[in-house]
């Protein structure tokens, strides 16, 4: 399994990368950590003519707090966010999700933004972004724009990034006081893609549940505070709306059952974290 031939360009700035994207047309791919892209190259599922390496763009390697958001640059690796001193305080949902994102070995190289662009429906970082209502910053040689999480991911492995754009940063909203956050997932082995992943946010009057791995992209529902039977009913309706699919890992029915049961547990956990 070897990739098909491609030209290679190591970009040293966002400008250099976006100019190359503008010249290259549809057939260009960006590589940051490569943890999702290189397997697809090795299997020849993707055959770009040019590969632009954006992992060495020094000014894209940062985590900073600005206007109630934590902004993470496109060269920032997942392990760097996981080991960030303030991750538990500022992004408690991500602090729970990151340790189950792939393996220690892949987090050492995979980037936060790369995982969002790859947009696997059961992936942890897109789910957290959708649930928290974050945003993605895209740049091209013509300028930059910001998209809400719900407008960014359009479906399975597909995002609203144009061929001449690169994601330069992502912004996750900072945790609010008096709000509880919880993340749970079911996977066959530690480090596998989740069969179903769940992210819950519980505030005084509302609960929000994001579900990955059932529909073709992370899907979020918000309810006024519900308890027991009303919550079960709401989760059941949500599960049927999500649909789900059969694959070698699990049936659609099992996925819906996880939404009902593990979804409830995740919400309960988020409520506990409020205090």
């Amino acid at each position: 399994m070897k990739p098909k031939g491609f030209d290679y360009l190591k970009a040293t700035s966002v400008g250099e990368a976006t100019e190359a994207l503008a010249r290259g047309g549809e057939d260009v791919r960006l590589i940051a950590g490569g943890m999702s892209l290189v397997p697809m190259l090795n299997f020849r599922l993707v055959e770009p003519s040019i590969l632009i390496d954006i992992s060495k763009i020094a000014d894209r390697k940062y985590i900073r707090e600005e206007r109630g958001m934590v902004e993470i640059g496109s060269a920032t690796r997942q392990c760097e966010l996981e080991n960030w001193d303030e991750v538990s305080e500022k992004l408690p949902l991500l602090a729970e999700a990151l340790p189950v994102l792939g393996h220690y070995q892949t987090r050492a190289r995979g980037t936060v933004c790369g995982s969002l662009v790859h947009a696997d429906p059961s992936s942890e970082l897109p789910l957290c972004l959708a649930t928290l209502g974050g945003e993605v910053v895209l740049s091209s040689s013509k300028g930059s724009r910001t998209l809400k999480a719900s407008d960014f991911q359009t479906g399975m492995l597909s995002v609203a990034k144009r061929a001449d754009e690169m994601v330069t940063a992502v912004r996750y909203p900072v945790a609010e006081r008096g709000v509880g956050y919880a993340f749970k997932e079911m996977s066959q082995r530690h480090g596998d893609y989740a069969i179903v992943a769940l992210a819950a946010v519980a505030s005084e009057n509302k609960i929000k549940l994001g579900v990955g791995g059932v529909a073709d992209k992370p899907t979020v529902r918000e309810w006024e505070n519900l308890d027991d039977n009303a919550l079960d009913e709401a989760l059941n309706t949500f599960a049927w709306e999500l649909g789900g699919y059969d694959d070698i890992h699990a049936s659609a029915r099992y996925r819906r059952e996880l939404v009902r049961r593990l979804g409830k547990k995740t919400i309960e956990e988020a409520r506990k974290c409020r205090s």
Binding site: Y8, K10, G34, V38, P39, S55, Y104, Q105, T106, A108
Partner: peptide, 13 residues
């Protein structure tokens, strides 16, 4: 010093 899968990395990198 960083853990790397050599099969997911290109030599030119």
């Amino acid at each position: 010093g960083n853990i790397t899968r050599a099969c997911l990395t290109f030599a030119v990198q």
